[in-house]
């Protein structure tokens, strides 16, 4: 029998733990604006059940930017309706969620290219040009 046919469903009610998190996010946004310092909340380190996460995601809403990074499985970095608040989900190669974060930043860390990588890219480009 394929696993999806095993009729185990866990109905879970929101625990109410997500509510204070919104206040936390608001604080972090204020800090971002005042000091420019980005911050991250590790969602799997908090006692949140799937219903809490749903609740949180619905409240924060969907924004304009939606990014995907293919790095050892897909990662999605979506800006929420609150700009500067990013919902970051890391998946492994099988597509299971391995970590979830709320990142409060102008641009999420992962999206930025590392100078050394840029350097490598530039060198590669130069080789490419010289071969033209």
């Amino acid at each position: 029998m394929p696993p999806e046919l095993i009729p185990i469903q866990i109905a879970v009610e929101p625990s109410g733990n997500a509510r204070p998190l919104l206040h936390e996010v608001a604080e972090l946004l204020k800090r971002l604006l005042e000091t420019g310092e980005p911050s991250t909340i590790d969602l799997s380190a908090l006692p949140l059940n799937p219903a809490d996460l749903d609740w949180l995601q619905t409240r924060l809403g969907e924004g304009e930017v939606s990014c995907q990074v293919q790095a050892n499985g897909e990662s999605t970095l979506d800006e929420t309706a609150c700009r500067g608040v990013w919902w970051v989900t890391h998946r492994n190669e099988r597509g299971s969620v391995v970590a979830q974060f709320i990142e409060v930043a102008f641009v999420p860390e992962l999206l930025k290219a590392h100078p050394q990588d840029i350097e490598a890219g530039r060198e590669q480009l130069e080789v490419l040009i010289s071969e033209l």
Partner: peptide, 16 residues
């Protein structure tokens, strides 16, 4: 294996 992959791995590991 790019830096982004590595960074993601470290973030996941730290979380775990």
């Amino acid at each position: 294996i790019g830096r982004r992959t590595f960074l993601k791995y470290c973030a996941t590991l730290a979380s775990m």
